[in-house]
Nucleic acid binder design. Structure first.
Length: 489
RNA sequence: GGGGCUGUAGGGUAGCUUGGUCCAUCCUGCAAGGCUGGGGGUCUUGCGACCUGAGUUCAAAUCUCAGCAGCCCCA
C-alpha cells in the first residue's frame, strides 16, 4: 500500500528511499559512491576502499583518456617500485618535511627487523630520481618525459573519504620530466597545464588554474600550478598539480648532464599528477538528484535499450530491440538491453542512477510508427525518433550531450565565482563558492586573510585575466595580484 | 591536533533511558512462484543482524572499559 510506504519510506513521494537530494551534497556524495556502485566503503581499514567493477569501468575509461593524452605528447609510460629505501627518501630535506608525518613504513621482513626501513611511496620522486641519475648522461638524453599510474600511500589524519582523501591513492598518474634549462622546464609546466586542461575538457569538467602561494607549493619544488574545480557545495577540489622542481632534486640526487660545451650541468625537472579525484570531480560536477550523469566518453553503458513488453507483442518488440542494439554496437557504442522483468519505470530509475547517457524505449505503440522513444540523461525529455538511421541519431545526441555537459558545468562554475574587495565580502561568499580578492603577495597578509575569512588562498590565476586594481585587505597597500579564495577539500 | 556523536541482516531502521516481554521490529534488498507490464506494481513463501574483546550481573542488543570502524563540528 502507498500509505505504508509513506510511513516507513524516507521520502514523501512514497518512492523507494535511495538518494538524498544533491543539495545535501555530502550525503549525496556518500550515497552515490555506494548505490551508484562506484566503490565499496566497507573495507575494514580506514581510508582504503574497494572499486566495484562498475566504478572501475569509469576509472578505466578516464585513465584511457589520460594515457592517450600523455602518450600523444611525447611521454612514455613506465613503472617504478612501491618501496623506497629510507636512505633515498631522506635525502631531500624540504621534501621529507612535507611528507614525513604521513609515510607508512615497512619495518620488518617476516619477523626480522629491516636494516633499512622501506617507505610505501607517498609520491615517487625519491624512487625515480636515483635512477634518473644513472640514466641521464648528456643533453641528448633530454628532455626525458616519463609517467606512471600507480597506487601511493599517505597516512591521512583528517577524515578520509572515498576518491577524495584516501590513505591509499589507487590511481595516481604522475609524470616526471627532466630538461636542460629552467626555461625548458617552465615550458613543460605550461604544456602539462594545457594537457590537464584538455583531459578535463574531455571529461566535461571545467577547471580553475592558479599558481599556489609559496607556503602551499610542493615540498622541494620551485613553484606549483594547480587545477581546481568547484564542487556543488562551493568548496574547491584540487584535481591536478604541476610542479616546477628547478634543480633542487637534481642537486640532491646528482642528476647532471653534459652540455654541448662538454660541461656537466644540473638538470631542471618537473613533475605533475592527477589522481582519482578526477573521478570525484566528474561525478560531483555532473550528477543530479537522480544519480550519476556521465560524459559519453567514460560512461560504462552509453545507451540502454528498454523493451516495453506486453504479452501479445513480446516477440516483435524484442526483435526490434535486438536489431537496435546490434546496429548501435556496430558503431562501437557500449549498449545494453534491459530485458529483466522489472517494470519499465523501475528500469528508467535504475539506469538514470547508473548514468547511462541515452535511453531508448521501444514498445508496441512505437513499433506501429517505426519509431522509438529517446531520452537523454542530462535533459530528461522524451523525443520520438525513427528506427531508420537510429545509429546516426544516437551518435549525434551523444556528441551534443558531451558539449552540453561542459557548457552547463562551466556556466555553473562561473556563477560560483564572485569578485570581492573586502574581507567581509569574502566571508559572505566563502561556503557558497570561490571569491577573488586583491592581495599584495606577502605571506603575512596571506595568513591574515586566510584566518579572517576562514578560507584558503588557492593562488593567483595563471592564465592572464584582467588584473583588477585594488587594495590588499591585509596591509592596505595597492595589490599587484588577484587571488582565488575558497574552502578547500 | 581538539571536541561531540554513532555502531542491530546487503542498505536503512525499532528496541537501549528503566538489563529479563527479543531464538530481536518494520521498510528495502535477495531467492522462488502467481497475476502483471509505456515512470519506482502486487500477492504468497523463503533468506538474512545485535562491530570485536574484556568486565559487571542469576541474566547484556541494552550498563562499564578498551580496541576497531564510521559521521559531524572546531583549529
Amino acid at each position: 500500500m502507498a500509505e505504508n510506504k509513506k510511513e516507513t519510506g524516507k521520502n514523501d513521494a512514497g518512492k523507494e528511499a535511495v538518494l538524498p537530494p544533491k543539495s545535501e551534497f555530502s550525503e549525496w556524495f556518500n550515497s552515490i559512491i555506494d548505490i551508484g556502485q562506484i566503490m565499496d566503503v566497507r573495507y575494514p581499514v580506514k581510508g582504503l576502499y574497494v572499486w566495484y567493477p562498475f566504478g572501475f569501468g569509469i576509472r578505466k575509461r578516464v585513465y584511457n583518456i589520460i594515457r592517450d593524452v600523455m602518450d600523444n605528447s611525447g611521454h612514455e609510460e613506465t613503472l617504478f617500485p612501491l618501496l623506497i629505501p629510507e636512505t633515498e627518501f631522506m635525502k631531500e630535506a624540504d621534501h621529507i618535511k612535507g611528507f614525513e608525518d604521513e609515510v607508512f613504513w615497512v619495518t620488518h621482513g617476516g619477523v626480522t627487523p629491516l636494516d633499512v626501513r622501506l617507505a610505501l611511496r607517498p609520491t615517487s620522486e625519491t624512487a625515480i630520481y636515483p635512477m634518473y641519475q644513472l640514466w641521464i648522461r648528456s643533453h641528448a638524453d633530454l628532455p626525458l618525459k616519463l609517467y606512471q599510474v600507480v597506487n601511493t600511500f599517505r597516512h591521512e589524519t583528517k577524515h578520509t573519504r572515498p576518491l577524495i582523501r584516501l590513505r591509499e591513492i589507487t590511481s595516481f598518474k604522475e609524470a616526471h620530466t627532466v630538461h636542460a634549462t629552467w626555461d625548458d622546464a617552465k615550458n613543460q609546466v605550461d604544456e602539462a597545464v594545457g594537457l590537464y586542461t584538455d583531459i578535463y575538457r574531455q571529461l566535461s569538467v571545467p577547471v580553475l588554474i592558479s599558481k599556489r602561494p609559496d607556503w602551499d607549493k610542493f615540498p622541494g619544488g620551485d613553484y606549483t600550478i594547480a587545477l581546481d574545480t568547484i564542487m556543488p557545495d562551493g568548496k574547491t577540489l584540487q584535481i591536478g598539480t604541476v610542479h616546477h622542481l628547478g634543480t633542487n632534486f637534481a642537486k640532491t640526487y646528482d642528476i647532471t648532464y653534459e652540455n654541448a660545451e662538454g660541461e656537466q650541468e644540473y638538470a631542471n625537472q618537473t613533475c605533475y599528477g592527477i589522481s582519482e579525484r578526477s573521478i570525484a570531480a566528474l561525478i560531483s560536477v555532473h550528477g543530479d538528484d537522480k544519480g550519476l550523469v556521465l560524459p559519453p566518453a567514460v560512461a560504462p553503458i552509453q545507451v540502454v535499450v528498454i523493451p516495453v513488453l506486453f504479452k501479445d507483442t513480446t516477440e516483435a518488440v524484442m526483435k526490434a530491440c535486438n536489431d537496435v542494439v546490434e546496429s548501435l554496437r556496430k558503431t562501437g557504442l557500449r549498449v545494453e538491453m534491459d530485458a529483466s522483468d522489472m517494470r519499465p519505470g523501475a528500469k528508467y530509475y535504475k539506469w538514470e542512477l547508473k548514468g547511462s547517457c541515452l535511453r531508448i524505449e521501444i514498445g508496441p505503440r512505437d513499433l506501429e510508427k517505426n519509431s522509438a522513444v529517446l531520452v537523454r540523461r542530462d535533459k530528461g525529455e522524451k523525443q520520438f525518433v525513427s528506427l531508420d538511421g537510429i545509429a546516426e541519431t544516437v551518435g549525434a545526441e551523444l556528441k551534443q550531450m558531451a558539449d552540453d555537459l561542459y557548457t552547463t558545468a562551466e556556466e555553473k562554475m562561473n556563477a560560483m565565482i564572485v569578485p570581492c574587495e573586502t574581507v567581509e565580502e569574502v566571508v559572505a561568499q566563502i561556503g557558497k563558492g570561490v571569491a577573488t580578492l586583491p592581495w599584495c603577495g606577502c605571506e603575512e597578509c596571506g595568513m591574515k586573510i586566510e584566518e579572517e575569512t576562514n578560507g584558503s588562498i588557492l593562488g593567483t590565476p595563471n592564465l592572464e585575466t584582467e588584473i583588477k586594481k585594488g587594495k590588499c585587505p591585509g596591509c592596505g597597500k595597492e595589490a599587484d595580484q588577484t587571488v582565488y579564495i575558497a574552502k578547500m577539500y
